[in-house]
Simulated assay, not measured.
Amino acid sequence: MKSSPTKYGSVAVTIHWLSAVAILAMLGSGFRAASMTDSAAKEAILMFHVPLGITIFVLTILRLFWWWRVDQKPSPVAGDPAWQTLSAKAIHVLFYVVILGMVASGIGTIVLSGAGGILFGAETGPLPDFSEFLPRVPHGLGARLMVALFLLHAGAALYHHFIKGDGLIWRMWFGSHDKGTRS
């Protein structure tokens, strides 16, 4: 369950991949909802988007708690230049900052717009124009930053796997692997 010096444990791996899938679904639903003009269709998407945001928040808090109180991360990859190690740490920290900022701006947008009742099924009616509420701006910027972080993170993992061939990608997967082959 816990991580070793060379590999993430099953709890960290599970939280990572659940978060990754949820974030991709969140980004897709958010960009889709932002481009819609039909209030009923937007409402249907946001009724998925908002609870998914809460799920991502819970997974993020769980992950932070896991690292803080229970587990330790594996050591950085030996032989990587210092700038790559620093970049990896910075991207991971930015992921947490952006996720928490997205949660705060999403909650702020819902509260200020009064759309919570509609999105949680307690009320009916057309959705407000979210662009009229200040937290919507950082929410949209955060989504774009999240896409950039996701591409950098995935690109680095693929670089390690296919270019360097160092088996790094297997550190964040289930079971034991030796440079890409099952052991």
Rank of each mutant, 00 (worst) to 15 (best):
F162H: 15
Q84W: 11
A157P: 02
P135Q: 10
S113W: 04
L112P: 01
W17N: 08
S176E: 14
H177G: 00
T85C: 02
R63P: 03
E123F: 14
A82H: 09
A143K: 05
R136T: 13
S131K: 14
L59K: 03
M146R: 03
G165P: 05
A25C: 15
G108M: 04
F120P: 00
K164T: 07
P126G: 05
P126R: 07
I15W: 01
F65I: 14
A148C: 11
G121A: 12
L24H: 07
T60D: 00
P5H: 07
A115K: 12
A44V: 12
A157M: 09
L46F: 08
W170F: 11
L18G: 03
I99G: 00
A20D: 02
D178Y: 12
G121I: 12
P128L: 08
K164C: 03
W83C: 02
V21F: 12
S29L: 14
T14P: 00
A88H: 07
R144P: 01
I110L: 10
R63A: 03
I118C: 02
G142E: 13
F133H: 13
A40M: 11
V98D: 00
L24S: 04
A157T: 15
G114W: 08
F174G: 06
I56P: 03
Y8V: 05
K164R: 14
S19D: 01
T55I: 13
L151H: 07
I56T: 01
V97M: 08
E43W: 06
T124K: 13
T181S: 11
W173H: 10
R63W: 05
S3W: 09
T55R: 02
R171E: 00
M47Y: 04
F57Q: 07
V13W: 03
L145H: 05
L86M: 09
S39Y: 13
G101V: 09
P51W: 13
S131R: 15
V13L: 05
W83G: 03
G53H: 12
V21T: 11
I91D: 01
G140Q: 14
W83V: 12
W173G: 00
G140I: 10
T55H: 02
H92Y: 04
L151Y: 10
D178H: 15
S10H: 09
R182A: 07
S29Q: 06
M26A: 11
K89V: 13
I23Y: 05
P128M: 06
E123V: 06
G167I: 07
G155M: 11
M36Q: 13
S176H: 12
V11F: 06
E123A: 15
R69W: 08
P128Y: 10
H49N: 09
D80W: 15
L86C: 04
I61R: 02
G9H: 12
I15A: 08
L134Y: 12
V77F: 02
R69I: 10
A20G: 09
S19H: 14
F162T: 06
P74F: 03
H49A: 04
W67D: 00
K2C: 01
T124L: 05
W83F: 14
L24E: 02
